[in-house]
Design a protein around this nucleic acid. Structure first.
Length: 345
DNA sequence: AACGCGGGGGG
DNA sequence: CCCCCAGCGTT
């Protein structure tokens, strides 16, 4: 990595801030420096793009405006506001963290970095983001944007998926940061990374850091940052039965262990005697990051009496069509339901 | 250090 | 079909 003279660091940070003051995105959670709102927004935006997360933030803080309102809600309802966003343990951790804040910090959002880091679902990045934005602590929020911007500018070839990279980049960022503006600096880094220094086809012509950027001068922007290759994609098959009587259907809750934590799904098996009453199956394909799910859904229409017998089985829940929205479903099942219920009216 | 964990969008 | 994204927790 090429060095930068001491005075150069100061100029770097100030150039970035100057650009940020003129070009920052106006986002809902930037209106106030309320640690609660910063926290919620940061968790929503973990591995999630602003466009996708913004509507969720608005709904979430409207329903749960304070730590206490979140802590005293049911996990079930919190999940309902997370439905469709993915990475569902984030919602469950948010809920647990709110209860921890209530129990251990008297309902006041903790102000110390180490305390913030101790909250479930809050890692080094999120703790730094909250500390810097809400409490003006001089710590670097090391996310993929920061890796990309700095790796390109300084032509740094360290593999960002290794643990050593975190320390190198956070120390470098701290040198570049004007210490009076830690929150602004971190958010400026995110905005430059998101809207200018993009992973592919970066807009170098409008970059405030173009001058001095080593990757730009060599035309090798897209080769940075260096990241280890990902694992291969695997395929998994799933079988569901949509058991209904024309008015209600059967669901069960998934465990907290694997994919789709605590969301609701259709039964995965039926008794032998129903095998010859299945309707034509629906085949859905659902792509995840490193997996492809082939989902087969067989519809089974029972009489009201038969459905009632079924519902006596352990863990099964009968849902009237009209109350379908009261439960959180994985995306593919939600789409199946919409189609089924919609076709009836 | 490597992996599981979602979903939407872009080329 | 691949890639990407305001990461974290577990093993």
């Amino acid at each position: 990595m090429e060095g930068l003279e001491k005075p150069g660091y100061v100029v770097w940070g100030e150039k970035l801030l100057e650009w940020y003051r003129a070009n920052q995105r106006d986002l809902l959670w930037r209106e106030r420096k309320d640690p609660y709102r910063v926290w919620i927004s940061e968790v929503i935006l973990q591995q999630t793009q602003v466009r996708q997360g913004a509507p969720y933030f608005e709904r979430f803080v409207q329903r749960f405006p304070t730590v206490e309102s979140l802590a005293t809600a049911s996990a079930e309802e919190v999940l309902l506001y997370w439905k469709g966003l993915g990475y569902y343990s984030r919602a469950l951790n948010l809920h647990r963290a709110a209860q921890k804040i209530l129990a251990e910090f008297g309902g006041n959002f903790p102000t110390e970095y180490q305390q913030i880091l101790s909250l479930p679902g809050v890692g080094p990045y999120t703790a730094s983001a909250i500390s810097s934005i809400a409490f003006s602590q001089p710590v670097a929020a090391v996310d993929t944007n920061l890796y990309r911007v700095l790796a390109r500018f300084f032509l740094c070839s360290v593999d960002i998926s290794t643990s050593g990279a975190y320390r190198i980049f956070s120390e470098l960022a701290l040198k570049l940061m004007p210490k009076e503006w830690p929150g602004e600096f971190n958010q400026a880094m995110m905005d430059v990374g998101a809207s200018v220094c993009k992973p592919l086809a970066p807009l170098c012509h409008e970059c405030p850091l173009r001058e001095g950027c080593l990757a730009f001068s060599r035309g090798t922007m897209e080769e940075y940052p260096v990241k280890q290759r990902k694992t291969k994609v695997s395929t998994i098959s799933m079988q569901y039965y949509f058991v209904n009587d024309g008015l209600s259907y059967i669901i069960q809750q998934r465990s907290e262990k694997s994919i789709w934590k605590r969301l609701y799904e259709f039964p995965t098996e039926i008794e032998q005697k129903y095998q010859d009453r299945l309707l034509a199956p629906e085949i859905l394909q659902h792509r995840l990051s490193h997996r492809v799910l082939n989902i087969r859904i067989d519809a089974l229409v029972l009489s009201t009496w038969e459905l009632e017998q079924w519902s006596k089985k352990e863990e099964s829940i009968v849902v009237p069509y009209t109350e379908s929205a009261g439960y959180s479903y994985p995306r593919p099942l939600e789409r199946y339901l919409e189609k089924w219920l919609g076709s009836r009216s």
